[in-house]
Design a protein around this nucleic acid. Structure first.
Lengths: 170, 170
DNA sequence: CCAAGCAGTCTGGTCACAAGACCGATACTG
DNA sequence: CAGTATCGGTCTTGTGACCAGACTGCTTGG
């Protein structure tokens, strides 16, 4: 969060965490990685972020051990590490908080524990087995009523069908 | 998050949530409110934030229904609404994520469910009753080993003793 | 009335971000 | 092999956010 004062602070790990994931776009990037997005160009198209900022964010995520970077042919692949995957409950928590307490004009995307086939509750827990499932065991489905105006990048298109988290998209 | 593009996006409540709480300092302010901090000057001293930014953040938090503002005598009091309190699990989640996955040089502050007298686990759940307690039912205690250099504002001093969340501090 | 404390607002300089041009490395194509 | 497309960046320029600190205006106590 390198903006002058970087939350240097009293015994607080919230400040530490925000130095890594508190910058603009970072959580959105991680959300997409949870969906299974792995390529620079896909993130670019899906997020409407500037190239420079995306490159910088990916750098700090790799540096801090939330993503790995690897070359496969002409593409570069970004993948979540264990630390990165561990942020999923937080991301999900923010999402369902927003859905519950903020006015919005679009219906919510749904998330389901695949092994129990039950939709997650507000805190990301599966009502059937009572546990908070790993990202890998979650499937996401588009909202029930589709929004009128929809994005048109490859990632958005792929996510119009049910999709297992972390599996490659598009 | 009013920086040009404000995450205007496909069916995603994460973007919506980040527009409200994704800006620099916002989550730190809410954390302090969870601790029970209620006055402008206390936040100012505890966070080392600029006055202008603090005023702006408090404005948007009040506007979005996370805090209420009221005058009591010469002071102004900020208090968490239901929506604001509902963010506690997310804040706690980020904190324990940071504690688990980020290197740091200081020991963690502890949080305990008062009715069960048990320390919360990573996901903010009480291992005894198995539920995620409300903020109001949580007590925070300073880290076991005190850090060498410590802050010296009223809030920091108050939090050197065990403290029930949401009860006034300092 | 005066002084003090609190909660802001104002100002000037610095830094981050947006948008888009440009660059280099790696394939594919003829 | 040269030419070209694609991908993943870097560079540049303008705009807006943030920081530090001075200043203001309201409320209360003496």
């Amino acid at each position: 969060m390198a903006l002058g004062n970087d939350y240097r602070e009293q015994n607080c790990f919230l400040a530490r965490a925000l130095e890594v994931v508190g910058e603009r776009w970072t959580l959105m990037i991680l959300r997409d990685c949870c969906y299974g997005v792995r390529h620079f160009s896909d993130l670019l198209a899906h997020l409407d972020i500037s190239r420079a900022v995306l490159a910088e964010r990916l750098d700090t995520l790799v540096d801090n051990g939330l993503l790995t970077r690897s070359r496969t042919g002409r593409q570069v692949e970004y993948q979540l590490t264990v630390a990165g995957k561990a942020l999923w409950p937080t991301i999900f928590g923010l999402m369902s908080w927003g859905q519950k307490y903020l006015p919005a004009d679009h219906p919510p995307r749904r998330f389901r524990h695949v092994t129990c086939a039950a939709d997650l509750d507000d805190s990301g827990r599966c009502p059937d087995c009572g546990r908070v499932p790993e990202v890998a065991d979650v499937e996401t489905r588009p909202a029930v009523r589709r929004r009128a105006i929809d994005r048109d990048d490859p990632v958005a298109k792929a996510l119009r069908e049910p999709h297992r988290m972390l599996t490659p998209v598009p």
